[in-house]
Amino acid sequence: MSGIPSNERRRPDRAALVIAPVLFAIAALIWWDAGRLAEMSNYSRIGPATVPHVVAIGLALLAVWTGFEAWRGDFPEREPIEVKPVVFIVAGLAGQMLLLKTAGFSIATGALFALTAFGFGRRKLWISLPIGIAFSFVVYIIFGRFLQLSLPAGPLEHLFF
């Protein structure tokens, strides 16, 4: 499977080719959603659905253009990426999100801190986790206690306050 015959160096960029249908799906979603809006009588003649329709058309056209460029292989070359560190950091963010209400700010954010460091190669969790929790607890004291930001409290925070 070769690309445009005149340019043997460039081949269809398959990963980039996926972007086109994604953009098209977003355009279709916006178009569909705008369709169920009630056009209420108003004096501006531009209703709530006008702008979403324009955005949807724009995205659909861009989807076609993207498909074309991806087929010609016009996207910049990509460096290979390492997936593992990304997974750890995403796990950290998801963990913080899920732990926040039950474990409180310090423990949840400490977990995020440790997992991020882990993703970047600091594998000693028994060091980074306590550091992260302690650091987050200090942040909690400054922002949650003294500056009155409403940060969720958990067992650790209740122990002290």
């Binding site: 950091i89 950290g92 963010l93 913080q96 999100m97 899920l98 926040l100 209400k101 700010f105 954010t109 995020l112 801190f113 440790a114 991020t116 460091a117 970047f120 190669g121 600091r122 980074s128 992260g132 650091f135 987050s136 942040v139 922002f143 930001l149 409403s150 940060l151 969720p152």
Partner: peptide, 28 residues
């Protein structure tokens, strides 16, 4: 060093969001 720098960045980036609106949805 990168591990500590980026761990700190994420800590404060999420702190700002939690402080303005402490909801799981916002973090999502």
């Amino acid at each position: 060093p990168k591990p500590w720098l980026y761990a700190g960045i994420l800590l404060f980036a999420t702190l700002g969001t939690i402080g303005a609106n402490p909801s799981v949805f916002e973090l999502g």
